[in-house]
């Protein structure tokens, strides 16, 4: 699996295909986060931005390999593992991006509640922001896995489905991402930090299910 991950990530990093989603994440943060803003609001916003970005990264990773090269790797390692490596590469890359974004946002924003009256402990705020970011990126990865090859093969339909599902995962009632983000924003009103642990478990289950389904279909269809 290490070799597969190395192969997939080298392909992602050297092709520069990672650049557009990373730029999108950067623009989201620059537009939405101002220096000196209350930390929990800013972290909630940063976490939410990571969801569509991860969905896009997953789409890039599972479609970047030419079909013949994919067949060669599938024969060597099995189609299931080959597809899993693509999904994991995108998710790990998004994790790195999420950690970076969370650290930067925590540093530039002010450790206070929404009306600047209560001090918020910066470390626990950062931790909660990181967990919320992971919740969002896991759901984004699930959206990307479900809306790309091999489950949705047509390019146009895949991109549209990816955007719609990513948006739904962010705003739909009952979505762990929405609940994690709104938990941060609500906590900001009173200055209390809650770590979205339940949401983390739920989103991990959703991501694992979506990934397993995509890999199983990949094993059938190469």
């Amino acid at each position: 699996m290490t070799a597969l991950l190395g192969y997939q990530s080298a392909m992602l990093l050297r092709s520069q295909r990672w650049l557009p989603p990373v730029l999108m994440y950067g623009i989201f943060l620059v537009v939405g986060v101002q220096a000196g803003q209350p930390v929990l609001d800013a972290l909630g916003y940063a976490a939410a931005a990571l969801l569509p970005v991860t969905a896009w990264l997953v789409r890039i990773c599972v479609t970047q390999e030419p079909a013949a090269a994919r067949a060669v790797v599938a024969a060597a390692s099995g189609s299931y593992r080959a597809h899993l490596a693509a999904l994991l590469t995108a998710t790990l890359f998004a994790c790195g991006l999420g950690v970076l974004g969370t650290v930067v946002v925590s540093m530039v924003s002010r450790p206070v509640n929404a009306d600047y009256t209560v001090r918020v402990p910066p470390l626990s705020a950062g931790t909660a922001g990181l967990v919320a970011a992971v919740v969002c990126l896991l759901l984004g990865a699930a959206a990307g896995a479900l809306c790309s090859r091999p489950l949705v093969n047509a390019r146009g339909r895949g991109i549209a489905a990816n955007a719609v599902v990513a948006l739904l995962a962010l705003v739909a009632v009952g979505s762990p991402a929405r609940s994690a983000v709104s938990g941060l924003v609500r906590g900001s009103l009173t200055g209390t930090v809650g770590i979205p642990g339940t949401q983390l478990v739920l989103s991990a289950l959703v991501a694992a299910g979506a990934g397993a389904l995509a890999c199983a279909v990949a094993a059938r269809r190469g």
Binding site: T2, A3, L4, Y7, A10, E65, P66, A76
Partner: peptide, 24 residues
């Protein structure tokens, strides 16, 4: 497996690709 046509649109040099495939 060796496919019939091997499109080379991969961001590796020939030997880099072969070493990576060998590791896989």
């Amino acid at each position: 497996f060796v496919p019939e046509r091997f499109p080379a649109a991969l961001p590796f040099t020939a030997s880099d690709y072969l070493v990576r495939l060998g590791r896989i």
